[in-house]
Write a protein that binds this DNA or RNA. Structure first.
Lengths: 117, 117
DNA sequence: TTGACATATTCCCATATCGGTATATATTGA
DNA sequence: TCAATATATACCGATATGGGAATATGTCAA
């Protein structure tokens, strides 16, 4: 076996920086391929290939408009990543550290004060 | 050139599901390698190799304890991922959609009502 | 020192990748 | 129908991968 396909899931698709750049651009609205080619300093075939990967994992949608193809962000496909990584937020956010303290306190009070520490 | 190394950054390191599992386990506290080997259904060498990748991108820290090596999560290394993906939260969270409406309203009022729409 | 245990490293192989280049497919207009 | 434009696909080469198996390194205990 080798590394999982880039089309395996959003995690793999998004590991490529160029693809994140593409998504960042699409966050501003629908774009044609050549439009993206110009903004990224990348050749047209590579952009088309990246877009294909993004399409296969559902991160973008396409629409035909004459001879152009307009790509559009499908944000919700990023939710699994957000959900996973958010559960770690407490490890760096002071806000969550304080919340932890409060919850620990509440729990202690709730379990009765037979103070075993 | 080929795909970016798994050790290139947290995005690439975390694209591998096994490594996410390892991090999930370490979220519960320090663990020795064999401990992880048992919980994941994975051979010891592969676990060591995954841990190496995680160490190289700073996602885990190690500590020697006799003949064991205790690995520990370093959550803040996930912050770049969280930061990136959070900016897309508005695309699926109703909460943020409503916030957008409010902000649009405020902006309109703030810019004066010379209603050019 | 020897043996047992814990972990890391090395070697192997099949595979998918990314960029480059060339070409194929579509759509429009003359 | 032919040329121009827009996009997708095919082919190439170098490379790192992940699991498997074998082995190396390190540490403790007797």
């Amino acid at each position: 076996m080798a590394r999982a396909a880039t089309t395996a899931d959003a995690f793999n698709a998004v590991a490529e920086p160029r693809r994140r750049e593409i998504l960042d651009l699409l966050a501003g609205g629908e774009r044609a391929v050549n439009d993206l080619v110009e903004e990224l300093a990348l050749a047209q075939p590579q952009v088309s290939k990246h877009l294909r990967v993004l399409r296969e994992v559902g991160l973008v949608d396409v629409r035909d408009e004459g001879r152009q193809r307009l790509y559009r962000l499908n944000g919700p496909a990023l939710k699994p990543i957000h959900d996973w990584v958010s559960s770690y937020e407490r490890t760096w956010s002071e806000r969550f550290e304080r919340l932890d303290v409060v919850l620990r306190d509440l729990k202690r009070k709730d379990e009765g004060d037979d103070g075993d520490d």
